[in-house]
């Protein structure tokens, strides 16, 4: 069961990666090119020698982008399948497709959207090469904190559902999530590395495209995995037996 779910998750991730590539190529690449043009202009003004790339821009924005989004899709799809295998039947009493869709929505919010409000995606030339270690660490720390805050909030909701009622328990859970995330955002250091003169429109459109690419990934994973896993779960021998037992009772 787990093995079949994992394989399906990775295949669905592959599809998600291809769709994310299409979105990224259409909406993201023009902004990447504007950013690289800006970088080249600044380098030329400073009189620096033109940096020769190992891999041509043409390859980077086509094959390279596709390899990157597909690798990411497969990785996220596979991990998603494992989380689904654990969460289904344990977190709430949703059906297969609803569990998959809600998990993907939660993943998008906690892995992409909320961390983005602290450390947003940035195009080439926005970001100092010397601080990359620190920024990478902070980026993953923010994701980890947000995911853990969401898990804690989920526990609060279930724990207090009886005592406070489902509505108030959900409000309490939301408050826990917001408080933890807000505290993390205040404590973690800010990153201000946009070079002077960088076009604000390019930055805005790049970030919007980035959010769209991640949305494409998670939307595809959430919906396609739910559809394929539903057949698998329904065909499970143990489940059929459970259903017969239920019918007999």
């Amino acid at each position: 069961m787990v093995r079949s779910l994992l394989i399906r998750g990775m295949l669905v991730g592959l599809l998600a990666g291809v769709l994310a590539f299409a979105f990224a190529y259409a909406f993201g690449e023009p902004q990447v090119q504007h950013a690289i043009d800006f970088e080249d202009l600044m380098a030329a003004k400073a009189g620096a020698a033109h940096e020769h790339a190992l891999i041509s821009r043409g390859t980077q924005r086509t094959v390279g982008l596709l390899i990157g989004t597909v690798a990411m899709g497969v990785a996220l799809g596979g991990m998603f399948a494992l989380v689904f295998a654990y969460a289904y039947g344990r977190v709430g009493s949703f059906g297969v497709r609803a569990t998959s869709a809600l998990l993907a929505l939660a993943a998008y919010v906690t892995i992409t959207l909320v961390p983005f409000t602290k450390y947003p995606a940035s195009p080439p030339s926005v970001g100092n090469a010397d601080t990359i270690d620190r920024r990478t660490l902070l980026f993953f720390a923010m994701i980890a904190i947000t995911v853990l805050a969401a898990i804690a909030a989920g526990r609060v909701r279930r724990e207090y559902a009886e005592r406070l009622g489902p509505w108030n328990a959900a409000i309490a859970a939301g408050a826990v999530f917001v408080l933890v995330v807000a505290a993390a955002q205040l404590i973690l250091p800010a990153v201000h590395e946009t070079p002077a003169g960088f076009p604000a429109d390019v930055l805005y459109r790049f970030r919007l495209a980035s959010l769209g690419i991640s949305a494409t990934l998670w939307l595809t994973i959430g919906l396609a995995f739910g559809a394929t896993a539903e057949r698998l779960v329904a065909a499970q021998p143990g489940r059929a037996r459970a259903r017969r037992a239920g019918a007999a009772a």
């Binding site: 690449e29 924005r61 990157g68 990359i132 980026f139 790049f206 980035s210």
Partner: peptide, 13 residues
């Protein structure tokens, strides 16, 4: 370098 564009667009530093 090969996956550089994806890295930026997927939001990695």
């Amino acid at each position: 370098e090969l996956v550089h564009d994806a890295r930026h667009l997927l939001g990695f530093p």
